[in-house]
Design a binder for these strands. Sequence first.
DNA 1: ACAAAGTTAGTTAATGTTCGCTAACTTATG
DNA 2: CATAAGTTAGCGAACATTAACTAACTTTGT
Lengths: 190, 190
Amino acid sequence: MQTERQIQIIEESIKLIALKGIQGFTIKNLSKAIGISEPAIYRHFESKTAILVAILDSFKEMAGMMSSLPFDEEQPAVEKIAFIFFRMLDVFTEQPTIIPIVFAEEIFKNDNMLKEKINEIQNLNLQKIETIIEQGQEAGNVRQDIDKSSLAIIFLGSFRLLIKRWDLNNYNFDLKEEGTKLVNSFKLIL
Amino acid sequence: MQTERQIQIIEESIKLIALKGIQGFTIKNLSKAIGISEPAIYRHFESKTAILVAILDSFKEMAGMMSSLPFDEEQPAVEKIAFIFFRMLDVFTEQPTIIPIVFAEEIFKNDNMLKEKINEIQNLNLQKIETIIEQGQEAGNVRQDIDKSSLAIIFLGSFRLLIKRWDLNNYNFDLKEEGTKLVNSFKLIL
DNA sequence: ACAAAGTTAGTTAATGTTCGCTAACTTATG
DNA sequence: CATAAGTTAGCGAACATTAACTAACTTTGT
């Protein structure tokens, strides 16, 4: 369980990284953002790395929730995939600060444990989509001339690029609109 | 024009960033990798930022070359796009160290000028592909029910994800093989 | 009921290390 | 002999973290 202060530290850390990059994520900047002294941070996390671990764990939890959505098996793959992506669009529009972290694995290249965690999260998402496509191909509602793994990479990859561009261009277009356009393209492709 | 030493510094910097992340890119690490003292670096670049600028400029030059390939106008869009992606596959297999930099804009979030440069490079690539698709749609050899911008994002996005995964998984699969598979899927989609 | 003991969450001051970078000097080269 | 390219020594600033202490609560023993 996390205390209120711990949650606050995690949230401010995410904001800091989103805004200033991993190099701007210092205990000094963090404590300033929260309004307590630097050593006070260490009453709630034993190290800076521990904060990063907590951030990634919260992301993993989120990814886990996303990938364990209880779908009606009868539903065509197109619908399931559209549902997942729309859900993600909601999450990112509500909390745009997580984008640079979720999609920037290189940030954690320093630490092997963190790198592993990021990789796990990515695989979780990719596999979920692959499974849905597989089921669709078996049920005959998804084209079979393209491999399920290729289709999964195509969907997730293009979705990631769209979201990253939205972030990089200071949210200057309507993500939900463009996202819907993209997902509709997915429907035409499947 | 760049001296031999400057080129060496740029190359070692890229390697360092690829291996240790932006936080591992320090003048100390750099000078150690090259085998000279720290102040000697400053005989060749006036600051650390100047090195990063030189790196991005070399990438931009590369992207410019890629996007100014003289295509036979008669050629169908599929062929042009396949050609570009195969070319990129070659570049990345030869120099895998550039991957984490080319595809990790967040690294440069600190500095606005660097951020701009990265954005420019990305737009260059995206626009080139969009133009090719547009020509293909006009010539009637590309489907018209999906917007050219969506198609461009789909191709570039999935390609990026594939390459990033190759990097993140320590090059443990055959990139050219998987890349060819993906490009063949593009052909089926177009 | 109440004082002693312990916990929590903060403070200021200071630790050793690393950062990018500079000054002053030396060596190698044409 | 002048210039380019290196050296050693050291700068101030920032880094993550620790030490020592304190005020405000909570728990415990009688």
